[in-house]
Amino acid sequence: MAKKTINAQQSTRRRQKSPAPKPRIENRRTEQSGVWWSRAFGVRSMAVGLAGAVLLYMGLSMNEGYKWVWTGLLKSNWKVIRTHKNATIEERYAMKVGFDYSYLNYIKKNTPEDAIILFPPHEHLSKTVDNQKLSNQIGSKKWVTHFLYPRRVLYQTEKDKNPLYNQVTHVAITAGYGYEYLEYTVNEQPPFAVFPKRKTNP
């Protein structure tokens, strides 16, 4: 019944071409949004916002962990990022991994992808030479493999148990150790380097 009434009203309106009550709706909207904005950013909102900001700041600065988040984690890294914003990927790796990365990247650049690289025994890996020292991570095969992949890595300590030992193509020199595994003599012997095991190797 109600539907019929509405339909009847509409049809009458259509016939009479009476103006639709559009402007009034628009006016109401504007009015509403105006009130909404004035309240959302009014004096009360500002007072609550200010009080909230002060409370939040005070609460966070009382906790060691949150202080570390701001100063130790976010601010200090942001400063580094801003200072070295044009750093290459290699420079960024070196920032975090240090001399280890520079050394491993040098090996990567000077060996083919199918190289099998022999590293000296673990006790010779982290010795200091010319103020340069590799970290203990160099003793981890998987860690070194991450930076040298797809090259394969093994250590002199695996001589009797690793079937790849006889297929070694290159020798990594760490802290001056490793020259004894080369099948030829090298005149100039830098402390950190990589050499083909046999002279015929590329």
């Binding site: 942001w78 920032m95 998987k142």
Partner: peptide, 19 residues
């Protein structure tokens, strides 16, 4: 700030590097 840190530094933490 954290997104900048994520994108800036490549993977360096041990668990991810070895795994």
């Amino acid at each position: 700030m954290n997104m900048a840190k994520i994108m800036y530094y490549p993977t360096f933490d041990r668990d991810s590097v070895v795994g």
